[in-house]
Protein backbone atom coordinates (compact mmCIF):
# COMPACT_ATOMS: atom_id res chain seq x y z
CA UNK A 1 0.00 0.00 0.00
CA UNK A 2 1.10 3.55 -0.76
CA UNK A 3 1.85 6.04 2.04
CA UNK A 4 -0.90 8.38 3.20
CA UNK A 5 -1.11 11.71 1.34
CA UNK A 6 -0.45 14.57 3.74
CA UNK A 7 -2.83 17.55 3.90
CA UNK A 8 -0.83 20.63 4.85
CA UNK A 9 -2.07 23.38 7.18
CA UNK A 10 -4.36 25.82 5.34
CA UNK A 11 -5.43 23.26 2.74
CA UNK A 12 -9.03 22.08 2.44
CA UNK A 13 -9.21 18.32 2.92
CA UNK A 14 -11.37 16.17 0.65
CA UNK A 15 -13.65 13.45 1.99
CA UNK A 16 -11.41 10.90 0.24
CA UNK A 17 -7.90 10.69 -1.14
CA UNK A 18 -7.95 10.19 -4.93
CA UNK A 19 -5.56 8.84 -7.53
CA UNK A 20 -5.18 10.28 -11.02
CA UNK A 21 -4.45 7.72 -13.73
CA UNK A 22 -3.79 7.93 -17.44
CA UNK A 23 -3.99 5.26 -20.10
CA UNK A 24 -3.68 5.17 -23.84
CA UNK A 25 -4.46 2.25 -26.08
CA UNK A 26 -2.77 1.83 -29.42
CA UNK A 27 -5.58 2.33 -31.96
CA UNK A 28 -6.67 -0.90 -33.61
CA UNK A 29 -5.07 -3.05 -30.97
CA UNK A 30 -7.36 -5.52 -29.20
CA UNK A 31 -7.94 -4.49 -25.59
CA UNK A 32 -7.05 -7.20 -23.10
CA UNK A 33 -6.90 -7.08 -19.33
CA UNK A 34 -3.14 -7.52 -19.48
CA UNK A 35 -2.32 -4.70 -21.88
CA UNK A 36 -4.90 -2.45 -20.22
CA UNK A 37 -3.11 -2.97 -16.91
CA UNK A 38 0.28 -2.30 -18.52
CA UNK A 39 -0.92 0.92 -20.12
CA UNK A 40 -2.31 2.28 -16.86
CA UNK A 41 -0.08 4.94 -15.32
CA UNK A 42 -0.55 6.42 -11.86
CA UNK A 43 0.20 10.13 -12.30
CA UNK A 44 -0.62 11.63 -8.90
CA UNK A 45 -2.50 11.26 -5.64
CA UNK A 46 -4.25 14.08 -3.83
CA UNK A 47 -6.20 14.58 -0.63
CA UNK A 48 -7.07 18.29 -0.64
CA UNK A 49 -8.77 20.80 -2.92
CA UNK A 50 -5.49 22.68 -3.35
CA UNK A 51 -3.55 19.54 -4.28
CA UNK A 52 -6.24 18.65 -6.83
CA UNK A 53 -6.00 22.03 -8.58
CA UNK A 54 -2.21 21.87 -8.46
CA UNK A 55 -2.23 18.66 -10.51
CA UNK A 56 -5.29 19.41 -12.62
CA UNK A 57 -3.91 22.75 -13.82
CA UNK A 58 -0.83 20.99 -15.15
CA UNK A 59 -2.87 18.19 -16.71
CA UNK A 60 -3.93 18.30 -20.33
CA UNK A 61 -7.62 18.95 -21.00
CA UNK A 62 -9.56 16.18 -22.74
CA UNK A 63 -9.73 18.38 -25.86
CA UNK A 64 -5.90 18.34 -26.09
CA UNK A 65 -5.50 14.58 -25.71
CA UNK A 66 -5.00 12.17 -28.60
CA UNK A 67 -7.74 9.70 -29.47
CA UNK A 68 -7.90 6.52 -27.37
CA UNK A 69 -6.66 8.32 -24.24
CA UNK A 70 -8.41 7.87 -20.91
CA UNK A 71 -8.07 9.92 -17.73
CA UNK A 72 -9.28 8.17 -14.59
CA UNK A 73 -9.84 9.72 -11.16
CA UNK A 74 -10.48 7.00 -8.61
CA UNK A 75 -10.61 6.80 -4.87
CA UNK A 76 -7.22 5.88 -3.48
CA UNK A 77 -6.76 2.13 -3.27
CA UNK A 78 -9.23 1.36 -6.08
CA UNK A 79 -7.57 0.50 -9.36
CA UNK A 80 -9.64 1.55 -12.38
CA UNK A 81 -10.13 -2.04 -13.48
CA UNK A 82 -13.26 -4.20 -13.45
CA UNK A 83 -11.38 -6.88 -11.51
CA UNK A 84 -10.61 -4.65 -8.50
CA UNK A 85 -12.52 -5.85 -5.43
CA UNK A 86 -14.31 -2.50 -5.13
CA UNK A 87 -15.47 -2.71 -8.75
CA UNK A 88 -16.20 -6.35 -9.38
CA UNK A 89 -19.86 -6.17 -8.32
CA UNK A 90 -20.28 -2.71 -9.74
CA UNK A 91 -21.09 -0.96 -12.94
CA UNK A 92 -20.98 2.43 -14.57
CA UNK A 93 -23.10 5.14 -16.05
CA UNK A 94 -21.94 5.98 -19.56
CA UNK A 95 -22.55 9.42 -21.05
CA UNK A 96 -21.61 9.92 -24.68
CA UNK A 97 -20.74 13.49 -25.58
CA UNK A 98 -20.35 15.09 -28.94
CA UNK A 99 -16.93 16.60 -29.54
CA UNK A 100 -16.45 19.99 -27.92
CA UNK A 101 -18.34 19.32 -24.70
CA UNK A 102 -15.89 17.07 -22.89
CA UNK A 103 -13.59 19.50 -21.13
CA UNK A 104 -16.41 21.44 -19.48
CA UNK A 105 -18.45 18.35 -18.62
CA UNK A 106 -15.43 16.49 -17.25
CA UNK A 107 -14.52 19.39 -14.97
CA UNK A 108 -18.11 19.58 -13.68
CA UNK A 109 -18.07 15.83 -13.12
CA UNK A 110 -14.86 15.91 -11.10
CA UNK A 111 -15.96 18.86 -8.98
CA UNK A 112 -19.22 17.08 -8.12
CA UNK A 113 -17.36 13.92 -7.14
CA UNK A 114 -14.67 15.65 -5.06
CA UNK A 115 -17.28 17.89 -3.43
CA UNK A 116 -19.41 14.86 -2.44
CA UNK A 117 -22.43 16.08 -4.39
CA UNK A 118 -23.65 12.58 -5.26
CA UNK A 119 -24.81 11.80 -1.71
CA UNK A 120 -24.49 8.03 -2.11
CA UNK A 121 -22.08 7.29 0.73
CA UNK A 122 -19.11 5.18 -0.31
CA UNK A 123 -20.74 3.96 -3.52
CA UNK A 124 -18.77 6.03 -6.03
CA UNK A 125 -15.49 4.37 -7.07
CA UNK A 126 -14.31 6.91 -9.60
CA UNK A 127 -14.84 8.51 -12.99
CA UNK A 128 -13.27 8.24 -16.41
CA UNK A 129 -13.12 10.48 -19.46
CA UNK A 130 -12.45 8.52 -22.63
CA UNK A 131 -11.34 10.47 -25.66
CA UNK A 132 -12.37 8.72 -28.86
CA UNK A 133 -12.26 9.63 -32.51
CA UNK A 134 -15.82 10.85 -32.97
CA UNK A 135 -17.05 11.33 -29.43
CA UNK A 136 -15.93 11.59 -25.82
CA UNK A 137 -17.37 9.42 -23.09
CA UNK A 138 -17.70 10.14 -19.39
CA UNK A 139 -18.30 7.16 -17.14
CA UNK A 140 -18.97 7.04 -13.43
CA UNK A 141 -18.23 3.80 -11.65
CA UNK A 142 -20.02 2.61 -8.53
CA UNK A 143 -19.62 -0.40 -6.27
CA UNK A 144 -23.03 -2.07 -6.39
CA UNK A 145 -24.65 -2.50 -9.78
CA UNK A 146 -27.75 -4.13 -8.26
CA UNK A 147 -28.51 -1.13 -6.03
CA UNK A 148 -31.04 0.66 -8.21
CA UNK A 149 -31.73 3.44 -5.69
CA UNK A 150 -28.06 4.38 -5.68
CA UNK A 151 -27.60 4.09 -9.44
CA UNK A 152 -30.73 6.21 -9.91
CA UNK A 153 -29.35 8.89 -7.59
CA UNK A 154 -26.04 8.89 -9.47
CA UNK A 155 -27.87 9.28 -12.81
CA UNK A 156 -29.95 12.21 -11.50
CA UNK A 157 -26.92 13.99 -10.04
CA UNK A 158 -24.94 13.40 -13.23
CA UNK A 159 -27.72 14.92 -15.33
CA UNK A 160 -27.86 17.95 -13.07
CA UNK A 161 -24.14 18.63 -12.72
CA UNK A 162 -23.20 17.97 -16.34
CA UNK A 163 -26.02 20.25 -17.45
CA UNK A 164 -26.59 18.12 -20.54
CA UNK A 165 -29.16 18.57 -23.27
CA UNK A 166 -32.30 16.57 -22.36
CA UNK A 167 -31.79 14.36 -25.40
CA UNK A 168 -28.45 13.00 -24.10
CA UNK A 169 -28.54 9.22 -23.89
CA UNK A 170 -27.28 7.65 -20.69
CA UNK A 171 -26.61 3.96 -20.40
CA UNK A 172 -25.82 1.81 -17.35
CA UNK A 173 -23.57 -1.18 -17.82
CA UNK A 174 -22.43 -3.67 -15.19
CA UNK A 175 -18.71 -4.51 -15.17
CA UNK A 176 -19.74 -8.15 -15.29
CA UNK A 177 -21.35 -7.53 -18.68
CA UNK A 178 -18.27 -5.61 -19.83
CA UNK A 179 -16.11 -8.58 -18.83
CA UNK A 180 -18.38 -10.97 -20.71
CA UNK A 181 -18.45 -9.05 -23.98
CA UNK A 182 -14.83 -7.84 -23.67
CA UNK A 183 -15.80 -4.29 -24.46
CA UNK A 184 -15.98 -1.25 -22.35
CA UNK A 185 -18.56 0.67 -24.34
Amino acid sequence: PLPQVEVKPGEHPLQYTYSLWFSRRAPGKQATTQNYDQNLQLLARFASVEQFWGYYSRCLRPVDLPSHSDIHIFKDGIKPMWEDSANKNGGKWIVRLRKGLASRCWENMILAMLGEQFMVGDEICGAVISVRFQEDIISVWNRTAQDSITTGKIRDTLKRVLNLPPTTVMEYKTHNDSLKDHSSF
Partner: peptide, 21 residues
Protein backbone atom coordinates in the same frame (compact mmCIF):
# COMPACT_ATOMS: atom_id res chain seq x y z
CA UNK B 1 -20.59 10.20 9.80
CA UNK B 2 -19.98 13.78 8.72
CA UNK B 3 -19.12 14.31 5.07
CA UNK B 4 -16.93 17.04 3.69
CA UNK B 5 -19.11 18.67 1.07
CA UNK B 6 -17.97 21.44 -1.30
CA UNK B 7 -20.08 23.42 -3.76
CA UNK B 8 -18.84 23.82 -7.31
CA UNK B 9 -18.48 27.62 -7.01
CA UNK B 10 -16.30 27.27 -3.92
CA UNK B 11 -14.08 24.68 -5.60
CA UNK B 12 -13.71 26.92 -8.66
CA UNK B 13 -12.65 29.85 -6.45
CA UNK B 14 -9.96 27.66 -4.89
CA UNK B 15 -8.37 27.12 -8.31
CA UNK B 16 -6.50 30.41 -7.90
CA UNK B 17 -5.42 29.82 -4.32
CA UNK B 18 -1.69 30.39 -3.78
CA UNK B 19 -1.63 26.95 -2.11
CA UNK B 20 -2.88 25.29 -5.30
CA UNK B 21 0.38 24.65 -7.10
Amino acid sequence: GTRIIYERTFLLQMRNSPLAK
